[in-house]
């Protein structure tokens, strides 16, 4: 079911500091837990999150096993022109998801 919830303001004034909020659906299995029979539950986490604005990277985060399920990542940035934010989550077992959101700068 991987799906993302993105909150980017639709409009902003040039140079405004804006907050971007992202929520990605993921179990974030630590790799430290065991089943009832003693087998290790293999690690399955998101390892990297990237945000690009019009192709230029503006934010990046590395994620680790201590991060809770469904990682909620928020950050601030400034915008000087209209354009498109592209978000990318990469993780174990070939996990790769993208999302995008546009903003109009007045």
């Amino acid at each position: 079911m991987p799906s993302a919830l993105i909150n980017v303001p639709k409009k902003a004034k040039r140079g405004d500091v804006i907050e971007i909020k992202t929520l990605m659906s993921h179990i974030m299995e630590t790799g430290y837990r065991h089943t009832a029979s003693g087998d290790v539950v293999p690690r399955d986490i998101i390892t990297s999150f990237t945000c690009r604005f019009n192709g230029t990277e503006v934010f990046r985060a590395d994620l680790y096993p201590a991060i809770a399920a469904n990682p909620f990542i928020t950050f601030f940035t400034t915008v000087t022109e209209s354009g498109k934010f592209e978000f990318e989550w990469i993780g174990d077992k070939g996990f790769s998801e993208t999302a995008q959101a546009s903003i109009t700068v007045e």
Partner: peptide
């Protein structure tokens, strides 16, 4: 705050599902 905002509420992922 987490519950109040639909884009921060992880329960909304299940609602979409």
């Amino acid at each position: 705050a987490m519950q109040d905002e639909d884009t921060a509420n992880p329960g909304m992922l299940s609602v979409l599902d």
